[in-house]
Write a protein that binds this DNA or RNA. Structure first.
Length: 952
RNA sequence: GCCCGAGUGGUGGAAUGGCAGACACGGCGGACUCAAAAUCCGCUGCUCGAAAGGGCGUGUGGGUUCGACUCCCACCUCGGGCACCA
């Protein structure tokens, strides 16, 4: 602000709306909303029924933000963009007659708190509590109308008790593919015991002993343990998910080297839901681009599995997956993933006659097994960046063995190469260089034969051909197009027992365990036989032990073994429990859950956060999931979910997966969690880089004539996402102090459409601040602080503008177009300014609807003015204004007159007049008449109320 | 490399087949003031013109249409996502 109150002869009116007054009003209303419990949302039954209880009979609307990780930095103005958007929408929804659920929790487990703890010795629970307190303070300053009782933190034992409870529901389930849903494993055991179901692995149930039966059931659970090739990061002492490793092979957090190594891990069988996760995207209102991202991530592909026999190894088969079974005649070699289990079985002890290049780059003297182990080492070390820079350069090693192509009976060499991944399909491919770009590059590199099986068009070059065409060199398939050839090949494979049509997914099972301290402990113990046993529900939560040394055992040695911090809490790990058969000794699971676990279901806990008997009361769940709402029946419980697009795949997919398991088991009544998803844009800001390429503090950069300097040194300007790393943060606290919260809220909503990234520019804020100042001045005498409103009617033109504004703002609010809503309100307010200048007072007929429409955006000033204009109670539940249709119509409308598509004149016509009247009015214009006199008119187009176009 | 999205005044943006540039910032001018600030009023896409008025204009090039920022094709640039997915 540039108020110069300190200078002597300056008179600022005593009641001018400036930062000081705004802050006083804001503090007053924030205190009052809290004291009056204004935004408590009633449940229809159960624990949270006592305040605002009459609203529980209204249709419900559930508005949700992606909850934040409470970092030590606090919020910058980029964070609340979505929060303000949902707050505006929630306030608008309350005024539109909905019982609105809106609150804010904290995704409080996670690596940053743990790393900070390792550095400083401060316990993560202490820093987390401090950070949450700071976030709550900042959110309160922003004027959020949250139901504070419903806030949760995922690291709170009263919350993660239920995360563990859900884990056990999933652990105790299996996927019944015939019924296409998850069912309790107790039912699986009962069916096997009762003989109504046979094991699906060829064994006979009655011949299995108790241990084998348990192993069978364990192997079918939705949560299971498996050796997984994981990203082991010795420096963090933990295993990272693929998604947490950067493109150059470093940990996303901390940039430490990451090595691949096999390790026994907990997995969740999300792949069982692959098909439903794709299909049910049709039920939700998400943007097509987000749906497409999820579909691509799940990556369904339809094709066939083909069995190849291995020459000189009787009974050893390799099964491959291919999307192009029609090209089998052109399979001239085969590639296994380097870690494929059959490699060690079939690798030759010495090279058969083969080109030297096939032996790899490890020297001519090494044997095939040595070459294999060298290559595996090479692959484990190779970073993603190095692979990327290789481009079309392919690497691999011939393992000295041959497979038989079942269609040609020819021997084809078997290679290992890192372009084949163990986690996709069967970890083995048949290579068809003529019809696949990667196989083509590999074949060219290693001098392997290329046989076309699809006829490319005339003039096609020396390249792989991926298009359609008649089959050639393919025996009985010759002449068929790709689709028909695929079908015929699959029939042939199935008849001959060489394969079958099948579908695979890119999606892999979810690696669920972490070797960290600051996460949910698994509710799992091990008995003497080392088989996992679920901790009974009654013993939940399994609380994190209060260890002193919670740091993971970090190491520079890539061969070091992961040791979770919890393993060192021996008093906790070794325990005596009575699991129904007397006190016995058990060992606790020492892995913890990933951060995604807590965020998979927080929206369900918001429904009934204080319930100690259930995750959520079933009746409460039913109300918020299926309770009457405005439109058609919905598949998702949350009506509007707003958050960053960076969660487009992982979080949203994991949460959908958990929700579907809970749905299958009857714990929730909708098949999807989030009905409407909206991705807000990022707040960008200028950032400055010095000569060394290091970011400098943006607030201290000086501009002169387009040249930017920092401490006298020239710096370069860039644009990037606001945040600590670019040193360009602006905090909401500073803006609230300098202009007021309402100004900040209004500015963030006015900057642009919610879903578009926008540049922060503090100097633009003054515009919306002036809007509020003018609104205040229109309703209140700046000298006395008393409202000057009149009950006299307004002129017709103003009344028309009022009603047009109401109609437009209502539509904008519904569609989250807050930027244009602010523009419409500004227009109306500017009109009101002229009316006040003319009449000396403001017509209540305009002021009141204007206040009510402004209230969702700038609630504090709206409440204050509502009170000053004579209303004792809050406007939070006042009905949102409705337009009077009679005043939406004009007497006269201006239309454009085009001659040959060019606008040449504008004329007035009576509203609702017919085409002939439009044309007559247009022809009556002197300029138009002059133009039309030059040449005859061939055709006339009239769009009523819009334009007339004369074509000559 | 593949996939998705976006390119409109000096700036943020508005208009989803029908009068391009709403609203705001910035700029220019005026009123008020000794003066400045604040406030209020007016002008502000580029260009030719003293003016009246004309020409051009939504990344580029084509196309569909009486009419295209909007739909289609190709290209360019920027942003985001993915990593050899058979």
């Amino acid at each position: 602000m540039t108020e110069r109150a300190a200078e002597p002869n300056i008179e600022i009116p005593a009641h001018r709306y400036n930062a000081a007054l705004a802050n006083a009003i804001e503090a007053k209303w924030q205190d009052r909303w809290e004291a009056d419990r204004t935004f408590y949302t009633p449940n229809p039954t159960g624990l949270l029924t006592e305040v605002n209880s009459e609203r529980a009979s209204l249709p419900k609307r559930y508005v949700l933000d992606m909850f934040p990780y409470p970092s030590g930095e606090g919020l910058h103005v980029g964070h609340p963009l979505g929060f303000i958007g949902t707050d505006v929408y929630a306030r608008f929804s309350r005024m539109s007659g909905f019982n609105v659920l809106h609150t804010m929790g904290f995704d409080a487990f996670g690596l940053p708190a743990e790393q900070y703890a390792v550095r400083t010795g401060q316990h993560p629970s202490v820093t987390t509590a401090e950070n949450i307190a700071n976030y709550r303070r900042q959110l309160r300053v922003l004027g959020m109308a949250h139901d504070s009782r419903r806030s949760i933190a995922t690291s709170d034992p009263s919350y993660y008790r239920w995360t563990q409870w859900i884990f056990l529901r999933i652990f105790n389930s299996w996927y019944d593919h015939e019924a296409d849903r998850a069912r309790p494993v107790s039912e699986l055991s009962a069916e096997l015991d009762g003989g109504t179901r046979e094991p699906d692995d060829g064994s006979t149930w009655s011949e299995l002993d108790d241990g084998e039966r348990r192993d069978y059931v364990d192997a079918h659970r939705l949560v299971y343990r498996a050796e997984a090739n994981v990203n082991w990061c010795p420096a963090l002492g933990t295993v990272l998910a693929n998604e947490e490793v950067t493109a150059d092979g470093l940990s996303e957090i901390g940039n430490h080297p990451v090595y691949k190594r096999p390790l026994k891990q907990w997995m969740m069988r999300i792949t069982a839901y692959a098909e439903r996760l794709i299909e049910d995207l049709d039920l939700v209102d998400w943007t097509d681009s987000i749906k497409l991202m999820q579909r691509n991530w799940i990556g369904r592909s339809v094709g066939a599995e083909v069995r190849f026999t291995v020459a000189k190894h009787d009974g050893v088969d390799i099964t491959v997956f291919t999307t192009r079974p029609d090209t089998l005649f052109g399979a001239t070699y085969m590639v296994l993933a380097p870690e494929h289990p059959l490699v060690d079985t079939i690798v030759a002890s010495s090279w058969p006659g083969c080109p030297a290049a096939w032996r790899g780059v490890f020297g001519v003297d090494v044997s095939p097994p040595e070459a294999v182990s060298h290559y595996r080492e090479y692959v484990a070390k190779k970073s993603e960046l190095e692979r990327q820079s290789e481009g079309k350069e392919k690497t691999g090693v011939f393992i000295g063995a041959y497979a038989i192509n079942p269609t040609t009976n020819e021997k084809i060499p078997i290679f290992i190469a890192d372009y084949v991944l163990m986690g996709y399909g069967t970890g083995a491919i048949m290579a068809v260089p003529a019809q696949d770009a990667r196989d083509w590059d590999f074949a060219k590199q290693f001098g392997l034969p290329i046989v076309r099986t699809v006829q490319p068009p005339e003039g096609f070059g020396d390249e792989p051909y991926l298009g359609d065409g008649p089959a050639i060199n393919s025996g009985p398939l010759d002449g068929l197009n790709v689709v028909d050839a695929k079908r015929k090949m699959i029939e042939g494979l199935e008849r001959g027992g060489w394969g079958r049509g099948t579908t695979t997914y890119k999606l892999r099972d979810w690696l669920f365990s972490r070797q960290r301290y600051w996460g949910e402990p698994f509710p799992i113990v091990y008995g003497d036989d080392d088989r996992p046993i679920a901790v009974p529900d009654a013993m939940l939560p399994v609380e994190l032990p209060e260890v002193v040394d919670f740091a993971p055992r970090i190491s520079d040695d890539p061969d070091a073994l992961p040791e979770p911090p919890l393993a060192r809490a021996e008093d906790w790990v070794f325990t005596e429990l009575d699991l129904g058969d007397g006190l016995k000794k058990y060992r606790r699971e020492t892995n913890t859950m990933p951060q995604w676990a807590g965020s998979c279901w927080y929206y369900l806990r918001y429904l009934d956060p204080t319930n100690e008997d259930a995750m959520v009361d079933p009746q409460v769940e039913k109300y918020w999931a299926t309770g009457s709402r405005d439109g058609a029946a919905a598949a998702g419980v949350v009506d509007l979910y707003v958050g960053g697009v960076e969660h487009a795949v992982l979080h949203l997919l994991y949460a959908r997966f958990w929700h579907k398991v809970l749905y299958d088991l009857g714990h929730v009544s909708t098949s999807e969690p989030f009905q409407r998803l909206y991705n807000q844009g990022y707040v960008l800001a200028a950032a400055y880089v010095d000569a060394r390429g290091v970011y400098v503090e943006a607030t201290e950069v000086v501009e002169r004539d387009g040249v930017f300097t920092f401490e006298g040194e020239p710096v370069t300007r860039e644009h990037g996402k606001m945040g600590k790393s670019l040193k360009n943060s602006v905090t909401p606290d500073d803006i609230c102090t300098e202009y007021g919260t309402d100004t900040l809220r209004l500015y963030e909503m006015f900057m642009g459409p919610l879903d578009v990234s926008r540049a922060w520019n503090t100097s633009d804020i003054i515009g919306v601040h002036r809007f509020l100042q003018r609104l205040w001045r229109n309703a209140v005498d700046e000298d006395t602080g008393v409202a000057h409103v009149t009950d006299l009617p307004v002129d017709d033109e103003t009344r028309r503008l009022l009603n047009r504004t109401i109609a437009a703002v209502r539509a904008d609010m519904t569609n989250l177009r807050f930027n244009t809503a602010v523009a419409r309100l500004t227009e109306l307010n500017n009109r009101l300014t002229s009316v006040v200048a003319r009449d000396g007072s403001a017509p209540r007929e305009v002021v009141e609807p204007l206040l009510l429409m402004t209230a969702p955006l700038a609630p504090h000033i709206a409440e204050e003015l509502w009170q000053l204009t004579g209303h004792p109670s809050t406007l939070a539940y006042e009905p949102f204004p409705e337009a009077d249709a009679a005043w939406l119509l004009e007497d006269q409308v201006e239309i454009g007159v085009q001659v040959d598509g060019k606008v040449r004149a504008r004329v007035m016509v009576p509203a609702g007049s017919d085409d002939a009247a439009h044309e007559a009015a247009a022809r009556a214009d002197a300029k138009v008449a002059a133009l039309l006199a030059e040449k005859p008119v061939r055709k006339t187009i009239v769009v009523a109320g819009r334009l007339v176009n004369f074509i000559r």
